[in-house]
Simulated scan of single mutants.
Amino acid sequence: MDTLNFDGSCDPNPGGIMGFGWIINWSNGKKPTEGSKEKKPSKSNTNNVAEYTALKEGIKNYLKLGGKGPLQVRGDSKLVISQMSGKWKVKNENLAEIKNETSEIIKKHNLNVKFTWVPREQNSIADRLALPKSRRNNMPKSDSKTESKSNSVKPENRKFVADVNSSSVSSKLRLQINELNTSPSPGFKSFAQLKVGGFDSFSRKKLETLQKEAGPKASSIAKKEFPNNSSQQASALRWMLRGLSTDLAVKKVKVDIELSKKRKK
């Protein structure tokens, strides 16, 4: 059976640039086919719209390349997979329109499709392709292959310096941090999209102050991960104090470092 993995992103969400990515693995042994597109910022752009559009574009590409099915479609969006398989109702008009268009394409070509949800770590290639091109070019190619290992701490075993629900962060940032903290293996794009959106109460605090507030254990972790770089240590501690778990705070800083290096080239 041929397989199609898809993913979509909107940066920032909502209203930002949407990226769509997919990869087709052929049952006849042919080399896998990767595809990606993006759309300029718009008020109607959201992560869910991006996910649905990635699915639609992936199926269209599969048919264009001569795919006949049966086709197993895999994605890490429970919303899209559950709605396409008929388990959940579609209440949003924008999503309903894309869903109906996708269903019509499937029906028109008499395509036998099975929808399966997969965790993000099993969708890493599509996850990377879903990033807008400017961000994807700044992402290390090896990252999508190693990110599940680097984020192997189970949510229930994560360590925290501060409770995000009591932290002085914006409601939007609180939601993003909660999503990361409860995800078994957050993808690269999730860290790339995690932004304060200006300055908050932690932004201007110096390393010494951050170390006192975060405590010796957290300070030791930051120092071990980013030796001889006080700026990176401070950044990790800021994210810990905002409510991000210690392991994810370290990953966030490492992602920012990689993006910064690529932008300077």
Rank of each mutant, 00 (worst) to 15 (best):
M1V: 08
L4G: 06
D7N: 09
S9V: 01
C10A: 04
G15S: 12
M18Q: 09
G19H: 02
F20T: 00
K39V: 04
K40W: 07
P41L: 07
N45F: 01
E51S: 02
A54G: 07
L55M: 08
N61H: 09
N61F: 10
K68P: 04
L71M: 07
Q72P: 04
V80N: 05
M84R: 01
E93G: 05
I105V: 15
K107E: 14
K108V: 02
H109S: 11
N112G: 07
V113K: 01
V118F: 14
N123S: 06
R128F: 00
A130Q: 04
L131A: 03
K133G: 07
S134M: 06
M139Q: 12
S142C: 09
S144W: 13
S144K: 14
R158K: 13
N165T: 13
S166H: 13
V169M: 04
S171G: 00
S171H: 02
L173S: 02
E179G: 01
N181E: 04
P184S: 06
S185P: 03
G187K: 00
G187L: 01
K189F: 13
L194M: 09
V196W: 05
R204V: 07
E208G: 07
T209D: 13
A214N: 11
A214D: 15
A214T: 14
P216G: 11
K217R: 11
A218P: 08
N229T: 11
Q232T: 00
Q233Y: 01
M240W: 05
L241A: 06
G243I: 05
T246W: 05
D247G: 08
L259T: 05
S260K: 14
